[in-house]
């Protein structure tokens, strides 16, 4: 039973990280209909920024809570700057081009960013310090759920709630929803669509960066390639939930995280990725619009 609960929580932790990344895919897709293949790299850049900033801050002798908060902020801001710039340079000029062009541009951006970090940093794995200490009160749950899992779960939940409030009630959130539903009409009511698209990239990048920092601290190492696998998994989760749907991305992420966790725990960890992609294939066959995605009906 303990083993089951342990797998359950480790599945939730995985799911949380997937969700933080998947939200960026799904929001961008919802607004401009593009699969932003460079999004995994933004997550990777967030993790690298976190590594550098947290190392510098701890050498300077900052207390741990300050290190965590400042690192999260720095990673989110730096990754957002990348996300914003990628959109501006690689996607905006192709806004009215055939659909395939921005997709190819996205794949190019992904490769560029990977190789840029590979050359600027190192091809090797770098150790990442554990930012989350082992809380004393968590000791009796040891073996079932760790302190860092708990922090990841809580952080993700808080972020999801804030994001939901932002999208539902703020002016920017309303503009995002309107733009996703009908871009021409959004322009006709006076929404600056370029601005909305930039905000979407910034938000998605910030979430991914925080995901990158959390998981790097949880696992303890990073390299230039972590964005690729995590990106594909999160993308799978977004498709599973229905790409373009925000609740769908969260649901898909948790289903994927739990499936992977149980499958590797009870069957074999050699097949971890096989389960994820089998799930993707099944969903594409039986429910191509995803669990919460809408079947597109053309209404005249």
């Amino acid at each position: 039973m303990d083993y089951f609960v342990e797998l359950f929580f480790s599945g939730l932790t995985r799911g949380s990280i997937y969700a933080l990344i998947a939200l960026g895919y799904t929001m961008v897709y919802g607004i401009i209909g593009l699969i932003n293949f460079a999004h995994g790299e933004i997550y990777m850049i967030g993790a690298f920024t976190a590594l550098i900033v947290s190392t510098v801050l701890s050498i300077m002798g900052f207390p741990l809570p300050a290190i965590i908060i400042l690192t999260a902020l720095a990673a989110a801001i730096w990754a957002s700057a990348y996300g914003y710039t990628v959109e501006k340079l690689a996607y905006r000029p192709l806004r009215n081009a055939p659909r395939l062009s921005p997709l190819i541009s996205a794949i190019g951006m992904s490769m560029f960013l990977q190789n840029y970090v590979l050359l600027a940093q190192t091809p090797d794995f770098l150790p990442f310090p554990a930012l989350i200490p082992d809380f004393a009160f968590m000791e009796r749950f040891a073996g079932v759920i760790g302190s860092s899992d708990l922090v990841i779960l809580i952080t993700t939940t808080v972020i999801m709630i804030l994001l939901t409030l932002l999208i539902k009630f703020t002016r920017t959130g309303k503009a995002m929803r309107a733009t996703a539903q009908d871009r021409t009409m959004a322009m006709l009511v006076g929404i600056n669509v370029d601005h909305v698209i930039s905000v979407t990239f910034i938000l998605g990048s910030a979430l991914a960066a925080i995901g990158g920092m959390l998981i790097a601290s949880h696992i303890g190492q990073i390299n230039f390639y972590i964005g690729f696998i995590a990106g594909i998994k999160a993308f799978t989760a977004a498709v599973l939930g229905g790409i373009g749907s925000i609740p769908g991305a969260v649901l898909g992420s948790f289903i994927l995280g739990l499936t992977e966790s149980f499958a590797t725990g009870y069957v074999s960890s050699d097949y971890e990725d096989v389960f994820a992609f089998s799930l993707l294939v099944l969903i594409l066959i039986f429910r191509p619009s995803g669990l919460l995605g809408k079947a597109t009906i053309e209404k005249v």
Binding site: R177, A178, Q181, D182, T184, M185, V189, K299
Partner: peptide, 13 residues
Amino acid sequence: CQVPEGRHIFPDL
């Protein structure tokens, strides 16, 4: 302001 052809109501709002 324009009321475009085909109305363009935001369907999910």
